[in-house]
Simulated scan of single mutants.
Amino acid sequence: MTVLGLGRAAPPEARADANTEFRLLGPVEVHDVRTGTGIAPPGSKQRALLSAFVVHAGELLSVDRLTEELWGDAPPANSANALQAHVARLRRLLPGPESPGDPAHEWISTLPTGYLLSLGRASTDVDTFHRLSAQGRAAAATDPGYATDLLRRALGLWRGPALQDSRYGPICTAEADRLEENRLSALETLYDASLRCAQHGEITGELEKLTADHPLRERFYDLLMVALYRSGRQAEALGVYERARRRLVDALGIEPGPALRGRMEAILNHAPDLTAPSPAPAGSGPMVLDDALELGGEIARLQRRIEDLNREQEALIRRFDALVARLPQTT
């Protein structure tokens, strides 16, 4: 057992990997949670390589797949050596032992057909975002005030577009698109929970900006219409519907969907269910909330496992297709 200078075993929290967070929700960086400092890979290919490793942490990434991620359809003639050099530089960038005698963590393993990143005790802002947003969704029905707190904490982790300056190959592009969709879904849940808390007056400005930034996403128009109606601004709420309709027709040639049309009709008819609810007392239903949060975490973990299995299936299909292509042709 490796010991420290005072003869004590290095506690798990003293390991470099325990104090490391990989951040992908914005500019890609390796963050030291103790000091609050971050190290960004110096080049675009280094950032893309680190991002691909973190997205597939614990999985083998083949040389061919990493080569495609970094160079696409135009790899250099010595692509294997070039990739090896990038991996070596990335290894030097990742944290080493924090002091002499501390246990070292092997971040990147070289395997016969590729490389594998092991997170060890390190964390990622992506996992934290998924955990908080899942807990927020689970709490929305029973304690919307707590849900809004959780969801704002989750969304506060974003420092810019996901995998910023790293979206070059299929791995990073697909992951960035998936994370952006998760972010928008979390925003929808946040403002729905805010309406459940009778916070319609506080969120109209934020929803106005979201409808401008995402003009084809009908749910933001829907939430804005409710917020405006509850603020006594019925005419403006109906104006939002007309604005959404024009944008959808101009961009896609389609009318708003049934949910948005139903909201417009409910506003015209002053439907009783549009009335702002009374704020629920703080701390209501703690046992139900705890169970819901636990279930939400399980759902998030299952979703990540499904996504991992889908990626493994795609990799196996590519290998199968490559083997079939090498079979002798028969007439």
Rank of each mutant, 00 (worst) to 15 (best):
L111K: 11
A235C: 03
I108F: 10
A77T: 07
L132V: 08
A57E: 05
E106M: 07
E180T: 14
S51Q: 02
D73G: 09
R121P: 08
L155C: 04
A122R: 08
K209D: 10
G160F: 01
L187D: 02
A10E: 02
F220W: 12
F22P: 05
A276T: 12
G169H: 07
G58V: 00
A176P: 13
A80W: 03
A227D: 06
R243L: 14
T211C: 08
A325I: 02
A280P: 01
R153L: 09
R233A: 13
T331P: 04
L268Y: 14
Q46L: 04
P97M: 11
S118Q: 06
E255A: 13
G36M: 11
R152S: 15
Y115S: 03
V288K: 01
L163V: 07
S109Y: 10
R153Y: 01
D213M: 05
E106H: 04
V54M: 09
A154M: 05
A40F: 00
G160M: 05
P328Q: 11
R233C: 02
T331K: 05
G36Q: 13
G156D: 04
D143E: 11
V126Q: 01
S166Q: 00
P272R: 05
G43H: 12
G297M: 01
A134M: 11
R92F: 06
K45I: 00
R91G: 00
L293P: 00
P258W: 11
V226D: 00
A147L: 03
E294W: 01
A141T: 12
T148I: 08
R47A: 09
W71G: 03
Y241K: 13
R65D: 14
S118P: 00
P281K: 05
L293N: 00
T189N: 10
D149A: 05
L90N: 06
R245C: 14
V28H: 01
H200P: 05
R92M: 03
P258A: 15
F220S: 03
Y146K: 02
H270T: 09
V240P: 03
L274V: 11
I299N: 08
